[in-house]
Design a protein around this nucleic acid. Structure first.
Length: 869
RNA sequence: GCCGGAGUGGCGGAACUGGUAGACGCGCCGGAUUCAAAAUCCGGUUCUGGCAACAGAGUGUCGGUUCGAGUCCGACCUCCGGCACCA
């Protein structure tokens, strides 16, 4: 390999071959060392890797390879989130089967990942669309049905009236079906749900323990769970005089502000509330019906008012509710600002203390009673903050918290209500009316109802060899697939033709990697590896995926399959990959986006961009914003082309160097060139060193000052890089530190025996420091430096603290806080001695002059600030 | 509207615990090499003034604390992301 010219294509293929032959990255449960499970979110096999994948998986690989070098027993697996809508869209478009399309994509993308040199244990690879994977998910679901954690109820879907099919949210474009262009309707159908709300409290409290998760993600999850404490209480329906009605109904309301109940001036039911039909009086029934119908047909978008808030629409029912606090009736309205899906779908309205109620009261001419005194001089509408209670009889004078507690106690004493906690979080609807997903393992029997498919009849296999006739799911269109017999009574019955939400598969794949081949969902190996020590993925999954997988982990725990409460102890969310955009405008006003690869930027003498032109025809183009790589802005950069041209190491290096992993990464072709230049320089420097032949052993006692200085820089660098990679995760600064060291080595012109020994020590260390980031070139240089072992098995370099002892330190001398000199002094010098040297300095003298020294601040070995006046 | 995050050279970014602002890289300028170009190597590069030594200014804005503030405190501005009638 000792080629004087760095040839990444050749080296990378050779090194990868050696890893494969040695099965270098297979994870074993019985291996030495503490376990370390490093997991990157699995990709959807869309067809080709994009830059976001490269970034995500390089971060994971850097961490994995570092941990391996530190002696940990590392598991780093990879798999495919293989079910999903794009396969169906491609199938309809190209007339192929989703399965064939998916498997072809997986094959291509697997090769791309291998070409990038990620240290995966490929023996654990999985694809979620395979029956041997999803059968366990089906079994789990049937168990959840038995436990009552999976249940059925009606829920709304987007219905395309022309294509006669349910649309996923992403298939609805501006309120119309993506293919038919017909306005989408809401339709209620029966669907399966998982009771994630049973775990709301635990999912919320668990966040407090997740110190290794970004605060942003934890905050988003807290808001999503949306815990609110308050009271729920019943109110009787009555007439305007407060007379109770025969066969009267009761309405339950939830409120977080029971302290304001004396200010209730009306009450509201959601349009979908079950009592809506029953409560309206004869004179109001027609108006109520009309309103409910129109509320169902109108989207939120249609109701956006000019100021961006939603129009407060509603209608009076003719009925009243008795306010138990005041013993006075309040009018009952129907309004669509009250949601059926939260609380009880009914509220007490207190315009004086709630902004929404204020707005509604304003529109409908309802009275306002203030029950909390706003601060003096306050000019707003509803006062929602703390203050002394007023107009509230026995609550008057109390603050918000005291009044709440009093009101709740009163409700409980009276037996009409109680303390209540509500969550925004809704149960997880897992039914999808799509083909390319895991079949929901349920059989519908006319007599026995919904029956879980028994274990010995699992998996319910999705047929893969299908043809799409239009947009219908092939298993919905095929009457034969549906036909079966009831497992309970043996009568003719039908299979469920809906499939699972694909978040179902991605909720437990991390655990299955730990039990490859197990004839159960998981086996005891899962407890060896779990929880995941480091999880890496995009922030776009902050809520859904990361909530579902925390939930599913608890389902696995409660089924006795894992011991831990949380699936992952640390989480890293990488930033977006962004790039410049360029465009031209045609005469008809259309914008045409030009790919950055086609553009050349012209600059002035200082490097400021002046303009840009298209390479192909020299025509000027406009410079747009720096935006997320996307097809629509035509600013995507294909990783494959870069790997072909510069090599995997270079692409990996630039991805890690351009910014810290959690920030957005601005792609730059010249930056990639810079990374490539660095690797070529490293290669050339090592070749120059090895061309001098073998080195003698390093003897620290015999080093001259220059040699000691290089050793000091080296061991400072080892310390910094170790800290950057293990604690700070700032791979960019780790690389910068190595670059700095290599710049010093390039100037270290010392062919003496000990000079070459120092150089040798330095390169052996650098090759290991860079190995997690650019493993191929490092493996080759490791051999070039005479090492016979494989680098992937080499230990992380150790810091020699004795080499870091400085002969001299730079002490900054300030006069009145301004830097006036930098002195090279012996370490440990005291204030008086430092002052003596400082005062000999001409520049310091000039600024001190004959002024009185009022104060001296001395930070040993760093700074001396002379305060004069 | 609410909740997060961020504002530092021409650009990406560094400065980790209040102590040298601009590491490292890109770009740009100058030089070497070359018939020439590419590649490579050397030097310079926050702004203003100065041949220079050096001086002054400077981390979104305004104010504060401190011997000393990019970093801490208060008020504000801008941008990005998330949620959005959740009672």
């Amino acid at each position: 390999m000792s080629d004087p010219v760095y040839n990444p294509a050749e080296i990378e293929v050779q090194v990868q071959q050696r890893w494969q032959e040695n099965d270098a990255f297979r994870a074993r449960e019985d291996a030495q060392g503490e376990k370390y499970y490093c997991l990157s979110m699995l990709p959807y096999p869309s067809g080709a890797l994009h830059m976001g994948h490269v970034r995500n998986y390089t971060i994971g690989d850097v961490i994995s390879r570092y941990q391996r070098m530190c002696g940990r027993n590392v598991l780093q697996p990879m798999g495919w989130d293989a079910f999903g809508l794009p396969a169906e869209n491609a199938a309809i478009k190209n007339n192929t089967a989703p399965a064939a399309w998916t498997y072809a994509n997986i094959d291509h993308m697997r090769e791309q990942l291998k070409r990038l040199g990620f240290a995966y244990d490929w023996s654990r690879e999985l694809a979620t669309c395979k029956p041997e994977y999803y059968r366990w998910e089906q079994l789990m679901f049937t168990r959840l049905m038995e436990k009552g954690l999976a249940y059925r109820r009606d829920a709304e879907v987007n219905w395309d009236p022309v294509d006669q099919t349910v649309l996923a949210n992403e298939q609805v474009v501006d309120g119309r079906g993506w293919r038919s262009g017909a306005p989408v309707e809401k339709k209620s159908i029966t669907q399966w749900f998982l009771r994630i709300t049973d775990y709301a409290e635990e999912l919320l409290n668990g966040l407090d323990q997740l110190d290794g998760w970004p605060d942003a993600v934890k905050t988003m999850q807290r808001n999503w769970i949306g815990r609110s404490e308050g009271a729920e209480f019943g109110m009787d329906v009555c007439d305007a005089q407060g007379n109770s009605l025969a066969g009267a109904y009761q309405v339950n309301v939830f409120t977080t502000r029971p302290d304001t109940a004396f200010g209730m001036t009306y009450a509201v039911l959601a349009p979908e509330h079950p009592l809506v039909d029953k409560i309206a009086t004869d004179t109001h029934r027609e108006a109520v019906r009309e309103f409910v119908a129109s509320a169902r047909a109108t989207t939120e978008l249609d109701r956006l008012a000019v100021d961006g808030s939603l129009e407060k629409r509603g209608v009076f029912t003719g009925a009243y509710l008795m306010n138990p606090f005041t013993r006075k009736p309040v009018p009952l309205y129907i309004a669509d600002y009250v949601l059926m899906g939260y609380g009880t779908g009914a509220i007490m309205a207190v315009p004086g203390q709630d902004e929404r109620d204020w707005e509604f009261a304003e529109v409908h001419g309802l009275p306002v009673v203030r029950t909390v005194e706003p601060p003096e001089g306050w000019q707003g509408k509803a006062w929602t903050e703390d203050g002394p209670a007023i107009n509230s009889e026995w609550l008057n004078g109390l603050n918000m918290e005291e009044a709440k507690q009093q009101a709740i106690s009163w409700l409980e004493e009276q037996g009409i209500g109680q303390r209540k906690v509500n969550y925004r979080l809704r149960d997880w609807g897992v039914s999808r009316q799509r083909y390319w997903g895991c079949p929901i393992p349920v059989i519908y029997c006319p007599d026995c109802g919904a029956v879980p498919v028994p274990e010995d009849q699992l998996p319910v296999v999705l047929p893969e060899d299908v043809t799409f006739m239009g947009v219908q799911s092939p298993i919905k269109a095929d009457p034969e697939w549906r036909q079966t017999t009831c497992p309970k009574c043996g009568a003719a019955a039908e299979r469920e033709t809906d499939t699972f939400d694909t978040f179902m598969e991605s909720s437990w794949y991390y655990a299955r990697y730990c039990s490859p081949g197990a004839q159960s969902q998981l086996d005891e190996r899962a407890n060896y590896w779990l929880p995941v020590d480091q999880y890496i993925g995009g922030i776009e999954h902050a809520i859904l995926h990361l909530m579902y997988f925390r939930f599913y982990h608890r389902l696995l725990r409660d089924a006795g399959m894992v011991d831990s409460d949380e699936p992952a102890t640390r989480l890293l969310c990488q930033g977006m990959v962004i790039a410049d955009t360029y465009y031209t405008e045609s005469d008809d006003g259309h914008t045409h986006w030009v790919n950055p690869a086609d553009v050349e930027v012209e600059r002035d003498a200082k490097g400021k961009p002046l303009g840009a032109k298209r390479r192909s025809d020299g025509q000027p183009v406009n410079i747009g914003a720096v935006e997320k790589m996307s097809k629509s802005k035509n600013n995507g950069v294909d990783p494959q082309g870069l790997v072909d041209r510069y090599g995997a190491d270079c692409v990996r290096l630039f991805s890690m160097f351009a910014s810290p992993p959690d920030q957005s990464l601005e792609w730059s072709d010249s930056g990639v060139e810079g990374a490539s230049r660095f690797l070529r320089r490293v290669w050339a420097q090592v070749m120059r060193h090895t061309s001098g032949g073998a080195c003698v052993a390093l003897d620290p006692a015999r080093l001259n000052a220059g040699q000691k200085e290089i050793r000091r820089l080296l061991h400072d660098t080892i310390a910094k890089v170790s800290d950057d990679i293990s604690r700070r995760y700032t791979f960019n600064t780790a690389i910068a530190a190595v670059m700095e060291l290599s710049n010093h080595l390039a100037k270290f012109d010392d062919d003496s025996e000990q000079g070459r020994a120092v150089m040798h020590e330095a390169w052996l260390a650098i090759v290991r420091l860079l190995n997690p980031i650019t493993p191929h070139i490092c493996e080759a240089l490791w051999a070039e430096l005479g090492e016979t072992s494989a680098l992937y098995q080499a230990p992380w370099p150790e810091v020699d603290e004795s080499a870091r002892v400085r002969q001299q330190v730079t002490v900054v001398v300030q006069v009145n806080g301004k830097v006036r000199a930098r002195l090279e002094l012996e370490p440990g010098i005291d204030q008086d001695a430092a002052m003596a040297v400082a005062m000999e300095n001409e520049n310091v003298q000039r600024h001190v002059e004959d002024k009185t020294v009022r104060k001296i601040i001395h930070v040993p070995d760093r700074l001396l600030n002379i305060v004069v006046g």
